[in-house]
Design a protein around this nucleic acid. Structure first.
Lengths: 242, 242
DNA sequence: AGACCAAATATGGTCAGACCATACATCCTG
DNA sequence: CAGGATGTATGGTCTGACCATATTTGGTCT
């Protein structure tokens, strides 16, 4: 893993890469799942015949990818525990690559457009009775109310993010939710500026209500259309053919 | 970065996190870009007042996220060089989280559906004269020909991946391309099985030609429809409302 | 002068050992 | 039995050493 084509092709795998592979094997073989603990760093090092620093580097990689979390001390929660936080990795990825100008804000916004429309249509088409769908739509309503009560753009945007995240959750795809969260994190500052520039948020709120209504009504077409209108309002310079 | 809510909220930042932050600052402040070199590990450790192992852990994180690549030895290519490979990180992320059952294959396939349809419509709507669009559509045609000549399912799938990757590239969004690549990597084995099960790949190839034609003709609607038909054929149990 | 080979050197990769900080476990005391 | 002191397992960090790799440098032979 973390294969990098920049390295010499015949390069001997590094010790920490070997550790990564072995840990991954072990997860698959032992059927480890979220909440299970990995052996301690010292024990792992001895088992795999490598130094503790190599084990630590491997664990750092797994932590970066949101697969383990480490806790010092003693007890059931201490040590390296398997977790599931793909979101942080995606957020870091976007931020760093935006900083390197490998990705443009435009590409991030476009991706958000894509996800958002898909999620709205999917959420509307999903069976409305599902518990997860109901809680998601309830959270959307809460976020709308919170945006009405927001006293400044930053607060408004926080609840706006919550609204759109709930929308993604209503679509019932955790990968999409994780990507959505990362995209919104990356766009947070941008969104605040947009709200400030816009001044009146009434139009945005009308859109939010339309979206929510369409999803509750199970009207996928109306939901997608409402999202398209909403994003056209939020990003006026990003038409579908721009 | 790599903030993990599992950690005690008042936890003192770890040394390697400090290093990460400083390196990120430095990239932004000095306007470093792809190809530029970071100081050596020993020098960095001294500058930041930490041990070399902490620097190494930070570099490992950056390497995992596809931002740096390290080369031993001496000379202009040695050391930690800024790169831009978001793809490997995404691939690792998907593989590990699929292994932990945090993500289901279903969610990955759904995401692929979303991207693929969006990319086809976007590629068709894009100005056809662009050099990048032309090379992407040319690669699509090459991949179709290679699939015709393929002698076994694995080979067919390789070129199929190339086709769909070129499709994503034709849409002109590097983030989408990176995600698409990771999704296809994750689905490779699954795709081979699907081709074996299907037996006759004639229908798939007809679809590929339809997609290519629609994009060259600039017909976004036809392109999206062709992709929808194609994926319905490739994943028969994954209807849009399933 | 040029070509070739050897030594120096800069760089990442790895290990071993020490020590600290943390937080639960254990035991002892009142 | 309650509560505090001590023990201990665990991650976090540093130091220093040594190895592997690949370029740079310089010297030597032709």
């Amino acid at each position: 893993m973390t294969t990098d084509e920049r390295r010499r092709p015949d390069a001997r795998p590094r010790a920490f890469e070997e550790v990564l592979a072995r840990i991954e094997e072990r997860i698959a073989a032992d059927g480890l799942t979220v909440g299970d603990r990995l052996p301690g760093e010292r024990q792992l090092a001895e088992q795999l015949g490598v130094g503790r620093s190599s084990v630590r580097e491997a664990l750092r990689v797994l932590e970066t990818l949101g697969v383990v979390a480490s806790q010092a001390g003693r007890g059931p929660d201490a040590g390296a525990v398997l977790t599931s936080r793909p979101g942080n990795a995606l957020t870091d990825l976007l931020r760093l690559h935006l900083g390197l100008a490998t990705l443009s804000m435009r590409e991030v916004i476009d991706t958000r457009l894509m996800i958002e429309q898909w999620a709205a249509a999917r959420a509307a088409a999903a069976p409305a009775g599902t518990a997860s769908t109901r809680t998601a739509t309830a959270r959307m309503a809460e976020a709308i109310a919170a945006m009405d009560a927001a006293r400044d753009p930053a607060e408004f945007v926080e609840h706006d993010i919550a609204f759109h995240l709930a929308l993604a959750e209503a679509a019932g795809n955790r990968l999409i939710v994780a990507v959505m969260r990362a995209l919104r994190d990356a766009l947070r500052r941008y969104a605040v500026d947009a709200v400030v520039r816009l001044g009146d948020t009434g139009g945005l709120q009308d859109d939010h209500r339309r979206i929510h209504r369409a999803i509750v009504d199970g009207d996928a077409e109306a939901a997608a259309a409402a999202v398209a209108d909403h994003l056209a309002r939020a990003y006026p310079d990003s038409g579908p053919d721009a």
